[in-house]
Amino acid sequence: MAARSALLKSSLAKKYWMSLTGLFLCLFLIVHLAGNLTLLKDAADAGPAFNAYTEFMTSFPLIKISSYLLYFSILFHAIDGILILTRENKKARPVNYASNKAERNSIWASRNMGVLGTAIFIFIVLHMANFWFKYKFTDIAMDPGDLPDMYGIVVASFQEGWYTAVYVVSMIVLGFHLWHGFESAFQTLGINHHKYSPIIQGVGRFYSVVVPALFAIIPIYIFLNL
């Protein structure tokens, strides 16, 4: 009887799902980043390239299916992580220590995944409201190639200083989240081997610095140059 509910209800199952959705989101970030990097092209090329990319992302059937998986993953990762795991974990220690030196046994990011995740979730809502929602549900101008001019919206947005700042800060938060999350996802799936774990750790740390950094460079670039 334990087995039947094991993949749905147990503490470990929640973690497996966290791990799988998390890794899927990591994969998505690379695709997203690849598209975004077109924004760094010369102003003349960047517009058409980026608009073509957004058009492709919203019309190609396979990507469309993936996008539902993506929405689900984001929501699941957030609900499972914030509403279930973080809350349950708080309940597991009803009285706190008067003196606690957690920094001596674990890194800060690993202890604050809930807070970091919440910040990222708020960022995603903001981000989607500004771009995804506009793209899907409002009329936007067309570019010379007769594609919706998302490039224009992006450039307009990042000319706002505060908006760029929010993005940059959010990417720092994401970096911390990934610093622990990437490695942790593998551990949760049972992948820990003295031979291979250092590689996973290295890749994870590289990923969690480089990916958010590249994401953050784009708004800064637009803000400063355009």
């Binding site: 334990a2 087995a3 094991a6 147990s10 503490s11 470990l12 929640k14 973690k15 795991l85 349950e88 974990n89 309940k91 597991a92 220690r93 957690a102 046994n105 674990s106 890194i107 690993s110 202890r111 995944m113 622990h180 490695e183 942790s184 551990q187 949760t188």
Partner: peptide, 21 residues
């Protein structure tokens, strides 16, 4: 492993978040 984890959950311990502490 199934039974031990089930009992662990019943006892009210929290979930592992791999902090390593």
């Amino acid at each position: 492993v199934l039974n031990m984890v089930e009992q662990m959950d019943k006892e009210g311990f929290g979930n592992c978040t791999n902090t390593g502490a």
